[in-house]
């Protein structure tokens, strides 16, 4: 194989990796519950919304041999329109083949508006303010997950 063919192969491989945007982790479950642990999506003002997520790592051979565990930052946000009404986060690590569950509670204040709230979950290697443009570069580690709840009076 000539050098230019090898170079072309390397370039194509990098381009494929960049375009594929595959993630090592998956958010396999996203549920909203009440304080008693019952799954529900309709809440009243004053109530606490428990958001429970499950993250799993089904490693490909690349990640399997690259690291024995993977550190990540999981962020749960709650939104009403363009206002972020709640934030919960955890920093932990996960091993190949493992699943991890994390739950965060967010209270809906009596003064909060009624309507549809959106819950978005992100899994990153760190906050943009912590990880720079280079080593370590900011990287999402899972496809974000979204669900909605309704809030009444």
């Amino acid at each position: 194989m000539r050098k230019k063919h090898l170079l072309a192969l390397v370039v194509v491989a990098f381009a494929a990796l960049a375009l594929a945007q595959t993630y090592p982790l998956q958010i396999t479950k996203l549920e909203t519950k009440d304080l008693q642990g019952n799954v529900k999506t309709s809440f009243k003002r004053g109530e606490v919304v428990i958001v429970e997520t499950t993250i799993s790592w089904a490693p490909t051979y690349y990640y399997y041999y690259a690291a024995a565990s993977l550190s990540y930052l999981e962020i749960i946000t709650m939104w009403y329109g363009y206002t972020m009404t709640g934030l919960a986060l955890t920093r932990t690590s996960i091993g190949p083949g493992e699943t991890k569950t994390f739950g965060g509670g967010m209270q809906i204040r009596m003064t909060d508006p009624m309507g549809t709230y959106r819950i978005e979950v992100y899994v990153w290697n760190g906050f943009p303010s912590e990880v720079g443009p280079k080593c370590p570069k900011w990287t999402p580690l899972a496809e974000k997950a979204i669900t909605t709840i309704s809030v009444g009076g």
Binding site: T77, L87, P140
Partner: peptide, 18 residues
Amino acid sequence: KCGIEIVDPAGAKAFVKE
């Protein structure tokens, strides 16, 4: 993909979005 973070004058996270 882009991560956006807004930090308030006290250093608290005011906004986090992907």
